[in-house]
Design a protein around this nucleic acid. Structure first.
Lengths: 349, 349
DNA sequence: CTGAAAGCGCTTACAG
DNA sequence: CTGAAAGCGCTTACAG
């Protein structure tokens, strides 16, 4: 009647204290690896734990005082390989630091994002890495911060948010790839993809604009096209563009995923990337290498950014500091085969 | 001096009981949505919670009795889009059921897998969905089961394990795609990729063998090539194959990732898939559609398998049953452009 | 319909 | 170096 406990769990430090013939305080000290415990005692306790199949109950531990070793990882689109790589980077440093991540995929929904963040707080996450959903507002982010929750924004900055940020150098990257197209001889260059309110898009457009102006050109509003930052978005936007009478000779896409969708639309119309029209991506995901033709793009190393974000969060948790740090990762131009000079130039040369 | 608590957390049911002028038992009842509480009381309590910014502490709740609403999700290779889709499917049903997943990427390391599973137990996961790392043994899995941990194996079965399983119909899928190649006229068909001990590979080879034998052919051991189930693995194995004097006319690859790696190797040698050699995948990841030529493959719907696995786990947690269930998802043939008849036949026709 | 008491498994001062 | 006691924030019988 008394042995009727669940087969699992239920071995507590009391059981192992009894088995080892010590008090539970001593067991607790062994658990923490305290140097106060005599080697001999420690041994007896360790043996008892092994014998009884003891499993440490972190929930109970956290309740009394210790920090939880859980952090939340909130991803806007895990189906995008770029964010999957980011998540892997985060998980890698977390695990090696003894932390374990909750994960949630918001699929760009701010509603889910709010639910999920609340749930993570309830479960005792001691910090959160947030890749914000598209319409996230500065206020939401600041509210969390005001609650004292360590929080790192990753990849996408949120205007008005006072959080720390880990992102890539969007402006420099976009400028770099635009200059590359200009040096190839392009004069009519479109910018395709991303939605107008997205801060990342603003940054990339800033770089795009800067490169044009440095070459004595200016932005043509007719060549700035919005789309969801997805394959479908890129497909639709490019289809629309190709339905026009006049085409640009080159297209700077918001990111790789958009570019790949756009290339699909080009394929449908018999337009060959790298021969009839130049096209570029951003992110350098594995897919960028695999499409045909391979995509000229900007490499940003998602895995590394994930690691940086996790390190920054862990530092803030440990120090208690909520200072607003920023890490901007390098954006390298990677030239592959998706770009060509504009058609006319080619005829001449 | 007494107001010196952390700005975060620290609002407890006691605080809100005081604010609402009730006992903490009543607050607890409101929290559980009990119908025993008078509407009026419930209102006062709810208002107090809103006013004080109360956050439910699930850790404390679990300690006393309630089941934790955490489950672990252990993935062997999150960088593989197939497993990313699976993870998204799992997360989707978990979240809508009020659960939240821990995630870990083992990167095929059984050592990490063991660490991670232990950590999840310590953190109070009430069940685990495991995509086992390559060298996982039945014993490890059974040990967990014996501890009373609800556990679902996903995608890869583990010989000797007595767990429930959600996977796709590997044998039927492989038979189907092999028959397709035979109907195209192929007689020298290789099987490329996966490592010999992998149960999934054994199943697919069984299907491959069955299709050959039904056509009156038999397996040629010289045409069975191992590789890691990754892009690099496929690349290396195909490079070796192409270094031989005699080539097969068609290659059944272990999965899409291997096939895409193999196609890269073919490209290097100027061998065109779908013209000089037929090649197939397995999984139907998004990439299979994007490579050039698009890959003939077996669609298994990773997202759906993820949802099934999560549903099965939740059912087992709720019912307390550790019955050994199995769900085998359909494996549909998807014909694209990576397959052609064998060269000689084409000359004739 | 509401309250007082005990207890979940740990950690944290405080003694000794 | 080790132990006894209080407490973390909840839930769960048990009264009333």
């Amino acid at each position: 009647m008394s042995g009727k406990r669940r087969a699992s769990a239920s071995v507590t430090i009391i059981d192992i204290a009894r088995e080892a013939g010590v008090s539970k305080s001593t067991v607790s000290l062994v658990l923490k690896g305290s140097s106060l415990v005599a080697d001999d005692t420690r041994d007896r306790v360790s043996k008892a734990m092994a014998k009884l199949g003891y499993v440490y109950n972190r929930g109970a531990a956290n309740l009394r005082g210790a920090q939880s070793s859980i952090v939340g990882m909130v991803i806007n689109d895990l189906a995008n390989p770029f964010f999957a790589e980011l998540a892997i980077g985060i998980e890698r440093v977390l695990r090696t630091s003894g932390y374990i991540p909750f994960i949630a995929n918001t699929a760009e929904s701010v509603v889910r994002q709010a639910e999920v963040v609340r749930s993570m707080r309830e479960h005792g996450a001691s910090g959160i890495i947030l890749c914000p959903a598209l319409e996230t507002e500065g206020r939401e982010v600041n509210d969390l911060l005001d609650l004292g929750m360590p929080l790192i924004l990753a990849i996408r900055r949120v205007p008005g948010a006072r959080t720390s940020l880990v992102a890539s150098d969007n402006t420099a990257g976009a400028a770099r790839i635009t200059s590359h197209l200009i040096s190839l001889g392009h004069r009519r260059i479109a910018f395709l993809g991303g939605m107008e309110p997205m801060a990342v898009r603003k940054d990339r457009i800033a770089g795009f604009t800067r490169a044009l102006e440095e070459a004595g050109m200016h932005v043509d509003p007719a060549l700035m096209l919005e789309s969801m930052p997805s394959k479908d978005g890129g497909f639709t936007a490019m289809s629309n563009l190709l339905a026009r009478r006049e085409w640009p000779t080159a297209v700077v896409c918001f990111n790789d995923v958009v570019a790949i969708g756009a290339m699909l639309a080009m394929g449908r119309k018999g337009v060959v990337a790298g021969r009839d029209m130049a096209i570029t991506g951003f992110d350098d995901t594995a897919e960028a290498r695999q499409v045909s033709p391979p995509l000229t793009t900007i490499a940003v190393d998602a895995g590394d950014l994930g690691e940086r974000a996790a390190q920054m969060l862990l530092r803030q948790i440990a120090s208690g500091s909520r200072a607003q740090e920023t890490y901007i990762g390098e954006a390298r131009l990677v030239v592959r085969e998706s770009c060509c000079p504009p058609p006319r130039e080619r005829k001449i040369s």
